[in-house]
């Protein structure tokens, strides 16, 4: 059985910022727009977490919107 398509994600490197993740994961996009997109796709990090945006090494950071 082949694996079905799921949302792509990355995990943060040590000390990596959301800007650095944007540059790494979405290199073809303007950094500001890429950061905004990543924030909107990862509310578990950038809205629900206290403090918001605290990036942890174990985080799943989606680099695309929900599928379908």
């Amino acid at each position: 059985m082949a694996l079905s398509l799921q949302r792509r994600f990355v995990t943060p490197g040590p000390g990596e910022t959301v800007e650095e993740i944007a540059d790494r994961a979405l290199p073809d996009q303007d950094q500001g727009a890429a950061v905004d997109a990543i924030r909107s796709w990862n509310l578990h990090i950038f809205a629900m977490r206290r403090p918001p945006g605290l990036l942890l090494g174990s985080d799943v950071v989606f680099i695309e919107p929900p599928i379908g």
């Binding site: 995990t11 490197g13 040590p14 206290r50 605290l54 942890l56 090494g57 174990s58």
Partner: peptide, 22 residues
């Protein structure tokens, strides 16, 4: 654990681990 926090609301130690550590 990827979800738990301590009594001060701080993520538990396991959540600071890179995937490489796991």
């Amino acid at each position: 654990s990827f979800v738990d926090v301590d009594e001060n609301g701080r993520p538990v130690p396991s959540r600071f681990a890179q995937f490489e550590e796991l």
